[in-house]
Design a protein around this nucleic acid. Structure first.
Lengths: 227, 227, 227, 227
DNA sequence: AATGAATGAGCTTTCATTCAT
DNA sequence: TATGAATGAAAGCTCATTCAT
């Protein structure tokens, strides 16, 4: 989830140099305007939730007119879905790299587990997840599309990694898919739920995350390790 | 979530004999009427979600008038919060019993893990959790109050159990609180998130739950078991 | 079309004696409020037309709240339809009486023709007809329901009268239905269209109406009269 | 002004050679572009009605840009008015020819009456009339301008014809203007109203039209014929 | 001169809340 | 005390019109 930290002023002049240089865009095709809308929508949705956020709020926050939003996005749900899609991949991309085949298993797993844990408990990621869960009943595709691929990708990537290590005779795992899910949940034991439900309002400290991730690696390898 | 099975008829007269015998109650003090409202609110909130549920819907389902609801509950949010409070503990109560100190550790843990897993992935429980998460941003206390105690109680109960076994020299656990969270997340490895996010729409089968719970017990005891 | 000449003040107090005496009404059941809404709707629809009239306009003119209108009427179209239905019958009722079987044919026909002509060219009747025609494309039932029965009733009533006179040997008419339509159109030769299309903005004078009606009777009896 | 640069596909470029040869026109002065707009507007207005037709629809149907329309026409109402003006005379032109002074009166009247009847009950003419009547309250000039001249022209043309025949001693008519209106309404006795109000949804068959027109001629000549 | 992306007032309709009964 | 008819702010969305390109 890339931040657009500074709040845009009321009506950002649409004619900044970089944009102007590219000439006039087709309706709903100007990526800068699209970004502008998404940025405003993100701030509003994030702070109010889907239902409580009004299109008027977004209009003002984004500094575009109502009509323009409706040129770029079919309706409120489509805008929300686009926002979620837009934020996709940001999470997983940072994590995939952690599973370096060249480093020892314990080290790779630790990196993977701790970075996944840190990422999924980040405040804005938690907020996003809550928001999507809040509309999951009415927009089931959205929830499974965004979070499904995201988390299943975590599982997929990890289970593929485990498959390789099993083939190399380094691990003994009957069901690598289950093992992947076990490791992921072990890596953030309790963190995820506690953050999601607001039981703890602050992100776990890096030290806590590391400690839990280290314990996860040990338990995992004690069980699935060869020898 | 205790069911109130029969749908109340349109307007059940609230003046049954036993109640009447106690004389007229102060406004907003009749526990029967309160129950009646909560029962109707539960059915409506559960089936429509917080925002989509209208006070009119609840009025009709509960068989009381609008004004009466507003005597018993400050506003819509307060009614929802009260409902969530009211449903508290129902989940945990069924699970606490699983940790029978008399049976072998492996067996007790398996019972605990599998019943917790089954409970938290039940469709209506999933729906309730989503609903609360959907309003969590605006009602932060609500989420932590309901889910906090609920799941932390799971952790509390289990860690107390583990403390006893450690004291008895049967387990070697440096941090029983962490161990409890590890076991709980391990017990439903992946199930919880996948259900919550709708990646899998059906409740896991008892066989799946058992298989995962069994694996959790093994991994847990391999690591923390005293040989 | 009964007039409600004076514009109601902003918020007519709903507790006038006559109303109060009847106790509280069920939602959407208070005929006084219903009348109030219809009266406001009539003035607004009449002066602006269906599309240009906004529910807000009607709200203010009727002196009721938006919500109340929607309790009494499903939506804007239903309100309009109810208004049209409500005005029904007022037109024909006054005309039917004209065909007195006791008076000579020429006299009865003259009464019928002239009163029909006067009625259908009255300004508010013209306005109502224009309005309905304006929405006829989208609400075809409405137009045929209101005007169909209305004018076909004129035809029906008259053709029945002619049937009797034919049976009595006083007229020789092969097709009384056609004859009825001929007489009606002859009675207001040109008036109807000219008023409807606004070619003449003032209602024809009684003298003009009488002259044309008299000519219609003569032409009609010259052709269909027995000797 | 002959530049309609891109938009090759949607609507064939209006820049044929003969036109191009005249050089660039002043804004809003190109009659071909004006025609193009009116043609598109006609199709849209006819199929959707005045209010439901959006300027965007017309823009696309006409194959010109929004701005261009606003150069040629003040606003939506002006465009509609111009369209109505533009269609003027199309109806009457076909009918005037029917009053051939060379053929016998009965025959000429029959031709005139039946063709007028057929024309005014044609579906698209009915639709146009409804549309204009729908906006008549707000645009009173429009209705009288379009329909006034049209039907009064019918009256004018016919009454002039009748004047000639009276002068020739062939008819005895004290008021030819009234007679003209009588004959016209008699010619489509009931048809016009029934079509306009949608009581009958199909255009009358030629046989019906002929039958009624023939009856009109007979009745008319029985009354006004010289012997 | 022509374009069409952008505007924002305005639309119909909903619903949490109030208060006269 | 309990009722539910009435309220009216606010919602999502449309579209006639403008003006930078």
């Amino acid at each position: 989830m890339s931040e657009t930290p500074e709040r845009l002023t009321r009506r950002p002049r649409p004619t900044d140099a970089g944009h102007k240089a590219q000439g006039r865009r087709a309706a709903g095709q100007d990526p800068i305007k699209r970004q502008q809308i998404l940025a405003g929508a993100k701030r509003i949705f994030m702070s109010l939730g889907f239902e409580a956020a009004s299109m008027n709020d977004i209009t003002q926050e984004a500094g575009v007119s109502k009509g323009t939003i409706y040129v770029y996005f079919e309706d409120k749900e489509a805008l929300f879905a686009a926002l979620i899609q837009h934020e996709r991949g940001a999470v997983l991309a940072r994590i995939e790299a952690a599973l370096d085949p060249a480093v020892p298993i314990a080290e790779a797993l630790f990196e993977f587990g701790s970075s996944l844990s840190a990422r999924l408990t980040a405040p804005e990621v938690i907020r996003a997840q809550r928001m999507v869960l809040g509309v999951a009943e009415r927009m089931p595709r959205l929830a499974s599309q965004f979070f499904g691929p995201q988390s299943s990708s975590g599982v997929t990537v990890l289970s593929r990694y485990l498959d390789q290590k099993v083939a190399a005779g380094l691990l003994a795992i009957p069901d690598t898919s289950l093992a992947a899910r076990q490791f992921i949940d072990l890596s953030m034991a309790g963190f995820f739920k506690r953050c999601l439900f607001g039981i703890i309002t602050d992100t776990p400290t890096p030290e806590e995350i590391d400690r839990v991730a280290r314990s996860a690696v040990e338990m995992f390898l004690r069980y699935y390790g060869r020898e």
